[in-house]
């Protein structure tokens, strides 16, 4: 505070007698005031707003929201388990394909039904969807021999490492936030691509075409279609969402209990941490939130007639 009150004496441009009672300071630049330039008024930072937009979270609602993440983790764990079962011959490819087809058919039925319930006026072209599905699986079948030999020359360690990285990418970029079911966001598609790539890499470890086709078709159903269904369930009912999370959790646990109990323990601990500890942590850390708003903030222009303003 070396230069507290730069000019104690009335400044030359003010020209007002020091004896005169000071008129109150005003936050204006065009008037000459008898206050020094570094004067700090009581109104300093009066317009400062702290944490104006902060929303207080409720513990159980955060717990409920966290199921989005736990469901996704569970689905990845289940996929890996199914690959291991297939790899060691505990599960036949026929069974997997049948399961996948039945599951997809049931899921589609539910999706179709709930869509007509929610938005009755929308006209889905079921024929088109069906045609697309048949075409897609035929193409996949045709590509199977190529996929099989794709990474023949690569060692297994590389494959496992690559798979882990790709699934982590899938986990990180998955579109958790948006509730929309039509438009595909960029990071969301990146995540789906990572998962499909991981499945291709894993599938190429198999010796027969049918195995490769089984895993690939399952991967497409599991990583591209299943998240859409999960989103749908979440938007319809909370109870259904909880039930789905629980079913996924149980499936993952039972599948992995045959493979490695250690992983089961880690998985269960992780899930507990994610579902019950993390929400608490988030709420606790909220107290350190310090959001500052004031007149210096960039104003948001309000424009009528429904036109949107894009930043930059």
């Amino acid at each position: 505070m070396a230069c507290r009150n730069i000019d104690q004496a009335p400044s030359s441009h003010a020209g007002i007698l020091p004896a005169a009672p000071r008129s109150p300071w005003r936050k204006l630049l065009y008037v000459k005031q008898e206050y020094p330039d570094n004067y700090v008024d009581d109104t300093f930072l009066e317009e400062l707003q702290k944490n104006a937009n902060v929303r207080q979270y409720e513990y159980w609602s955060v717990v409920l929201e966290s199921t989005i993440i736990s469901q996704h983790i569970s689905s990845i764990v289940i996929f890996v388990a199914i690959f291991i079962y297939l790899y060691f011959g505990l599960l036949s490819s026929h069974a997997l394909i049948t399961m996948g087809t039945v599951g997809t058919a049931v899921g589609y039925g539910f999706w179709d039904w709930s869509n007509t319930m929610l938005t009755p006026d929308s006209n889905y072209q079921r024929r088109k969807i069906f045609k697309g599905a048949v075409l897609f699986f035929l193409t996949l079948l045709g590509l199977t021999p190529i996929l099989k030999t794709l990474t023949e020359k690569t060692s297994e360690d590389t494959i496992w490492a690559l798979t882990v990285i790709l699934f982590l990418a899938n986990l990180a970029f998955h579109d958790y936030g948006s509730g929309n079911r039509r438009n595909i966001k960029y990071p969301g598609s990146l995540s789906t691509n990572a998962a499909i790539f991981a499945s291709v890499v894993l599938a190429s470890r198999f010796k027969t075409n049918l195995h490769v086709f089984g895993l690939m078709s399952f991967a497409v159903e599991w990583f591209a279609l299943f998240p859409m269904l999960r989103r749908q369930v979440r938007s319809i009912s909370n109870r259904g969402n909880l039930a789905l999370s629980f079913v996924l959790f149980l499936t993952a646990t039972t599948l992995f209990s045959q493979i490695s109990p250690a992983i089961v323990v880690i998985y269960i601990l992780g899930m507990v941490f994610l579902t019950f500890v993390c929400p608490f942590w988030l709420i606790w850390i909220q107290r350190y939130k310090n959001e500052i708003h004031g007149p210096w903030d960039e104003a948001r222009p309000k424009i009528q007639h429904g036109r949107s303003v894009d930043n930059y």
């Binding site: 230069c3 630049l29 330039d37 570094n38 700090v40 007149p295 210096w296």
Partner: peptide, 19 residues
């Protein structure tokens, strides 16, 4: 306004800021 902003941003003593 700029003074208030700068004081907050750089954690300064307001007396050390002139307008």
């Amino acid at each position: 306004t700029s003074k208030e902003n700068t004081v907050l941003r750089a954690a300064l003593t307001p007396q050390n800021v002139s307008v």
